[in-house]
């Protein structure tokens, strides 16, 4: 069911040409979230997906080999939690990612840890546990592809992908 939702929503966004699409991908990989059947709306509208992605920020970044939330990360997650508490029709999947400086399996585990750190924080701020799923991509889906810290720092991320919930 989830997969079907993703495919439909990805197609919808492609159709209006708002973002680059990869219809094969099961999620956003941090390249921009997707919402079932709706347009992102305006970044100035606090209920819009665009506001979530651009104004609040849909991702938090991590230090090398760490999953501790930085003060910046906490402030972004506070914003995400508030948005989610207002917009109860949505659920989220948090994708955890690592940079390429690690072995694959360890990075899968590290990505899981990062996604979970963000998940735990959202739940601690009152977002219902069953609205927050996690998945790890390890180092399989880098956002930036250079091999320097400039890229690596953007790849060590947990991205909150908003999806249409069961009630919508």
């Amino acid at each position: 069911m989830v997969n079907i939702l993703v495919k439909l929503s990805a197609a919808a966004i492609c159709a209006v040409g708002l973002t680059a699409c990869d219809t094969n991908s099961p999620g956003g990989y941090g390249a921009g979230g997707v919402v079932g059947g709706i347009q992102p709306g305006s970044p100035s509208d606090p209920t819009s997906l665009a506001y979530f992605q651009q104004t609040i920020g849909d991702r938090v970044l991590f230090a090398v080999d760490q999953s501790t939330l930085s003060p910046e990360a906490i402030s972004i997650l506070d914003g995400q939690a508030n948005w989610l508490l207002q917009s109860t029709q949505y659920v989220v999947t948090i994708e955890g990612h690592a940079d390429e400086q690690g072995t694959r399996e360890y990075n899968l585990a590290l990505g899981a840890r990062r996604a979970s750190a963000a998940q735990n924080y959202l739940v601690s701020r009152g977002v219902a546990d069953n609205r927050v799923k996690t998945v790890t991509f390890g180092k399989e889906r880098p956002l930036e592809i250079c091999s320097t810290e400039a890229c690596w720092s953007k790849n060590r991320r947990a991205v909150t992908i908003v999806r249409a919930g069961l009630g919508s």
């Binding site: 999953s67 399996e105 899968l108 585990a109 899981a112 840890r113 990062r114 735990n120 790890t136």
Partner: peptide, 25 residues
């Protein structure tokens, strides 16, 4: 939950792997 890093036992009857739950593998 998430599962990865599988490997067979030498007799082929079992597999060891990592399962990750709530961020703990």
């Amino acid at each position: 939950s998430m599962a990865f890093a599988p490997r067979f036992s030498p007799d082929g009857t079992k597999v060891v792997m990592s399962l990750s739950e709530r961020g703990n593998s």
